[in-house]
Simulated assay, not measured.
Amino acid sequence: MVSSTFNERGADVGRRAALISGASFAGLATAYGLNRLGYQVTVVEAAAGLRRGGTPVDIEGETIAILEQMGLVELVRAKALPSRRFEFKNADNTTLGSIGVSGDQASEVRYEIHRDDLLDILFGAVANDVEVLFGRSISSLDEQAESVSVTLNDGKRRDVALMVGCDGNRSNTRRLVFGNGDQFTYFLGGYFFLKVVPETGLVAADTSEVFRAPGRMAMLNGYDDRTDIGFGFRTDAEIAYDYRDRAQQRRLIQQRCGDLGWKVPDMLASVAGDDDFYFDRINQIRMPCWSRGRVVLVGDAGYCVSPLAGLGGSMAIIGAGRLAAALERFPDDHASAFRHYEDELRPFVEQIQQRAADEGMSTMCPADEAELAARDREIAAGHMGW
Rank of each mutant, 00 (worst) to 15 (best):
M1I: 04
N7V: 13
V13M: 12
R16D: 13
A17L: 07
L19R: 01
G22L: 12
F25C: 05
T30W: 02
A46E: 08
G53N: 07
T55S: 08
D58F: 06
G61D: 09
L67C: 11
E74T: 11
V76M: 15
S83G: 06
F86S: 03
E87K: 02
N90V: 08
N93Q: 10
G97W: 02
I99P: 03
S102W: 02
G103F: 07
R110Q: 11
H114Y: 12
R136V: 03
L141Q: 06
L141H: 05
D142R: 10
E143Y: 08
E143L: 13
L152E: 07
D154M: 01
R157V: 08
D159A: 01
M163H: 03
G165K: 00
R174Y: 07
R174A: 12
N180L: 15
G181Y: 13
D182R: 14
Q183W: 14
T185I: 14
F187N: 05
G190Q: 06
Y191E: 00
F193H: 08
V196Q: 11
G201W: 13
A204P: 09
D206A: 07
T207H: 03
F211G: 08
R212D: 03
G215F: 15
L220P: 10
D225K: 00
T227C: 06
I229L: 14
I229N: 07
G232T: 04
A240K: 02
A240R: 09
Y241Q: 12
D242C: 08
R246A: 12
Q254T: 15
V264G: 12
A269Q: 09
A272K: 11
G273D: 13
F277T: 01
F277K: 03
F279E: 13
R281M: 11
N283Q: 15
I285C: 00
M287N: 06
S291W: 01
G293E: 11
V296R: 00
G299F: 13
A301N: 07
Y303M: 01
C304M: 06
G310S: 04
M315I: 09
R322F: 10
A325K: 02
E328W: 04
F338V: 02
Y341F: 11
D343I: 09
D343V: 07
E344Y: 07
R346V: 01
I352F: 10
R355E: 12
R355F: 11
A356D: 04
A357D: 14
M361I: 15
L372K: 13
L372Y: 11
D376H: 14
I379R: 11
A381G: 13
G382V: 09
